[in-house]
């Protein structure tokens, strides 16, 4: 199955196997490019960050522990963090969402569904559905666009304290739901 193939490609990449690394790239580059593009907001930057992401993966794959994280989570976390690093290093902040970014759907067509998924995978989405729309939307934006409270508040044109309050209440409710 796809997830097993991905784990194997990642583990063998950790052993400096270039063929496995190429396989890993073809299996995951679309997913990781989607992440970089969404956060960077421009194609050239997203390409540069993607390049960095795979270099990082090459160097760190040896430290991947299959028992601790799903391979796509491990890879996607690297991509998201690298893209956020890039975005926060830019002097001019984007104050509006990028126009042509692919839509994030509330109910996803699971592009890579065979890659992910353990028993818990839909729980978060179910719990997010219980939140007020503005709470859910703020949490979504923070995650997918990689932005801080300050930028969330600026985008919505509301006071910082109000935004913090929305998100915190949303997260608290989410935790109650997740731990139930």
């Amino acid at each position: 199955m796809a997830r097993a193939r991905l784990v194997e490609a990642l583990v063998r990449t950790g052993e400096e196997d270039r063929v496995a690394f190429r396989d890993l790239y073809s299996l995951t580059s679309a997913k990781l490019f989607g992440i970089c593009y969404r956060i960077c907001g421009e194609r050239q930057a997203a390409e540069d960050v993607l390049h960095d992401v795979y270099l990082t993966i090459w160097k760190r794959a040896g430290a991947y522990e299959p028992s601790r994280a799903s391979p796509i989570t491990w890879l996607a976390t690297i991509a998201r963090n690298r893209a956020i690093d890039w975005q926060r290093a830019q002097t001019v902040r984007r104050s509006t969402p990028i126009e042509d970014a692919p839509e994030i759907l509330d109910k996803a067509p699971l592009v890579s569904e065979t890659m992910l998924h353990d028993e818990q995978s839909h729980l978060l989405q179910e719990c997010l559905d219980l939140l007020e729309q503005r709470q859910r939307s703020a949490i979504h934006t923070a995650f997918f666009d990689g932005v801080t409270y300050a930028e969330l508040a600026e985008r919505q044109n509301i006071p910082l304290g109000t935004m913090k309050s929305w998100v915190r209440r949303g997260l608290a409710r989410l935790r109650e739901c997740l731990e139930r």
Binding site: R38, H51, A69, S121, L124, F144, L178
Partner: peptide
């Protein structure tokens, strides 16, 4: 861990083939 479930929702986007460039960097 909880939030990583959101990665499912992230749309994939056909990536340019920059693998040769990555290999050169390695």
């Amino acid at each position: 861990g909880y939030l990583s479930q959101l990665f499912d929702l992230w749309p994939a986007l056909a990536a340019p083939d920059i693998f040769p460039r990555i290999e050169r960097s390695i």
